[in-house]
Simulated scan of single mutants.
Amino acid sequence: MTETYIATLDRIVDGQTAVLLLEENGKTVDQLDVDVTKLPPEAQHEGAVLEIAVEAGEFCDAEYRPDATQSRKESAQERLDRLSTKLSDRDR
């Protein structure tokens, strides 16, 4: 049975192993290590969001989700901006 997950490329180890964090309902539920060359070329970077297919615990396929990747990047930047603003306000 093939399962589908949203996954985020957390990091690339030794330039060849992509560490994917698998999500269900917005929460990380598992990790899957995949040869980075099995991912679409445009998704071979940290923070990339993909929809992946897994069968019997093995990676089958991945589709890059550029809109989700951009949205998460912007959301993370907004959080950092808010935190840095709050810290700078404390210095006054």
Rank of each mutant, 00 (worst) to 15 (best):
His45Thr: 06
Thr69Leu: 04
Lys73Arg: 12
Glu74Thr: 01
Tyr5Asn: 06
Gln77Thr: 03
Ala53Leu: 05
Ala53Gly: 04
Val34Pro: 00
Ser75Ile: 06
Glu46Thr: 05
Glu24Pro: 03
Gln77Tyr: 06
Ile6Lys: 10
Asp67Asn: 08
Ala62Ile: 06
Asn25Glu: 15
Val13Gln: 08
Tyr5Arg: 05
Leu39Tyr: 00
Ser88Glu: 13
Thr8Val: 13
Glu24Val: 12
Thr2Cys: 04
Pro41Gln: 09
Arg11Lys: 11
Ile6Trp: 07
Asp35Thr: 09
Lys38Ala: 10
Gly26Asp: 09
Lys38Arg: 15
Arg11Ser: 07
Gly57Ser: 01
Ala7His: 12
Asp67Thr: 09
Glu58Cys: 06
Arg92Asn: 03
Glu42Asp: 14
Ser71Trp: 07
Phe59Lys: 09
Ser88Thr: 08
Ile6Gln: 11
Glu55Thr: 01
Met1Ile: 10
Ala68Phe: 03
Val29Gly: 08
Gln31Leu: 12
Tyr64Asn: 03
Thr85Trp: 03
Glu23His: 15
Ala76Ile: 11
Asp30Tyr: 05
Ala53Pro: 01
Lys27Pro: 06
Asp10Gly: 00
Tyr64Leu: 01
Glu58Lys: 15
Ile6Arg: 12
Gly47Arg: 06
Ser84Gln: 15
Val36Pro: 04
Ser71Leu: 13
Lys73Phe: 15
Thr28Trp: 06
Asp67Glu: 15
Gln31Phe: 11
Lys38Gln: 13
Glu24Gly: 10
Gln16Arg: 14
Arg82Thr: 13
Asp91Ile: 10
Leu39Trp: 00
Thr69Asp: 05
Val49Trp: 01
Leu80Tyr: 04
Asp30Met: 03
Gln31Ile: 12
Leu87Trp: 05
Leu83Cys: 00
Asn25Ile: 04
Met1Trp: 07
Gly47Ile: 04
Ser75Trp: 06
Ser84Gly: 03
Glu24Cys: 07
Glu78Arg: 15
Gln70Lys: 08
Ser88Gly: 02
Leu80Arg: 09
Glu46Met: 01
Pro40Asp: 02
Ala62Trp: 04
Glu51Ala: 08
Val34Asn: 01
Lys27Phe: 08
Asn25His: 13
Met1Arg: 14
Ser88Asp: 11
Gln16His: 11
Ala43Cys: 03
Val13Ala: 04
Lys73Glu: 11
Ser71Gln: 13
Val34Met: 05
Arg79Met: 05
Tyr64Ser: 03
Arg65Met: 09
Ala76Thr: 12
Arg82Phe: 04
Thr4Leu: 14
Met1Val: 11
Arg92Pro: 00
Arg65Lys: 13
Cys60Glu: 07
Asp67Ile: 07
Leu21Tyr: 02
Thr2Gly: 03
Glu24Ser: 15
Val36Thr: 09
Gln31Arg: 14
Phe59Val: 08
Phe59Cys: 07
Ala48Lys: 00
Thr2Tyr: 09
Leu9Thr: 12
Asp91Met: 13
Thr37Asp: 10
Gln44Glu: 12
Val13Pro: 02
Gln70Met: 05
Tyr5Thr: 04
Glu51Pro: 00
Glu3Trp: 03
Ala18Cys: 02
Met1Asn: 12
Lys86Ile: 14
Val49Met: 05
Thr37Lys: 10
Thr17Lys: 10
Asp35Ser: 11
Ala62Phe: 05
Asp81His: 13
